[in-house]
Design a binder for these strands. Structure first.
Length: 312
DNA sequence: CGCCTTTGACCCGCGC
DNA sequence: GCGCGGGTCAAAGGCG
């Protein structure tokens, strides 16, 4: 449990504080809210959704285009690199909720190596190509590099029969490891788009084999590939979660637009105009669009429990 | 042929 | 120092 999270939960929002206000919180907010204005790093999406099941189902269907019974995202969490004492963050904040130790440990692991190898690789490429053949032998590199800034992480628990959930992006599997204390392996995927180093790990909960735990790390720096094979709205939602500062913003915007028509519409809006997870979208248009989308009431229904959790 | 998965080896951090 | 576990690499092979 991080102090930032506590502070966030304990923060007294003005009574008139709205979704719109929150989405436009100043970047240079007090440190107690975390580096990004406020810290959603341990927030569990389910917290709010469970408090309003109807809204949950509605959002699921409208955003994911899924019926809750098919493939159900019923837990998620956001991890951010700034906090390392997150051992209880995923489940600690919500001890009675859908808990999965694997998820917890998953989100907890510092991921020290993430990106390190890539950096090492780059260094090798620069320092001497001939070393490529012995790349595996090259151990000590200037890992003294400034402490690797870890990418924000988002983990989802999804009820699904398939391990690798379609999310609209293209992934290449680059590894698979057996997970300790679990009969199910963990798979490692990397976004195939050039210069996009987003990764995701997929594993099946050993406690509930019907649950797939997907952990995204990093942020896509590109739109969802046009030749979508899956549910683009789901993709938009997944990717939006990866931008903690804006996840509510874009997520609900996506929800609103998905409800209004095609998923392409949601895509176009979410990625074509405002950029990927941009928090600086035109506030006026955004604000208005929440209403236009017709889901504003739904959002209002959901949101308070998200951000006013433990509010007194 | 390009893209993807598989898989054993390797690297690294951490705890003992 | 050593072993363990997590994460990554990259060669080899499969597939459309």
């Amino acid at each position: 449990m991080s102090n930032e999270t506590k502070d966030f939960y304990n923060y007294q929002f003005p009574s008139s504080f709205s979704l719109y206000d929150m989405m436009n919180l100043p970047t240079s907010a007090p440190s107690s809210y975390g580096n990004n204005g406020f810290d959603l790093s341990s927030y569990s999406f389910t917290d709010c959704l469970q408090s309003s099941p109807g809204a949950y189902d509605s959002l699921l269907q409208k955003t994911f285009g899924l019926s809750p019974s098919s493939s159900e995202v019923f837990n998620s969490s956001i991890d951010q690199e700034s906090k390392r004492d997150v051992s209880n963050d995923v489940t600690g904040e919500t001890p009675t909720r859908v808990s999965a130790p694997s998820s917890s440990s998953e989100a907890d692991h510092p991921g020290e190596d993430s990106g390190k190898s890539q950096i090492r690789k780059r260094e090798l490429a620069e320092d001497g190509g001939e070393e490529n053949q012995n790349s595996k032998k090259v151990g000590k590199t200037k890992k003294n590099e400034e402490k690797k800034q870890r990418e924000p992480r988002v983990s989802f628990m999804t009820k699904s029969e398939v391990d690798h959930l379609e999310d609209g992006y293209r992934w290449r599997k680059y590894g698979q490891k057996a997970v300790k204390n679990s009969p199910y392996p963990r798979s490692y995927y990397r976004c195939t788009t050039q210069k996009c180093n987003v990764k995701k790990r997929v594993e099946r909960s050993f406690q509930d084999p019907t649950v797939v735990i997907t952990t995204y790390e990093g942020q896509h720096n590109h739109p969802i590939p046009t030749n979508l094979r899956g549910n683009s709205a789901a993709a938009a939602m997944y990717s939006d979660f990866m931008t903690p500062r804006s996840f509510t913003h874009d997520m609900f915007r996506t929800a609103a637009y998905t409800s209004g028509g095609s998923v392409e519409g949601a895509l176009d809006y979410g990625y074509g105009q405002s950029g990927y997870g941009s928090v600086n979208a035109n506030p006026n248009s955004s604000h208005q669009n929440y209403h236009q989308g017709g889901e504003y009431e739904l959002l209002k229904e959901i949101l308070p429990s998200i951000f006013f959790k433990q509010e007194h």
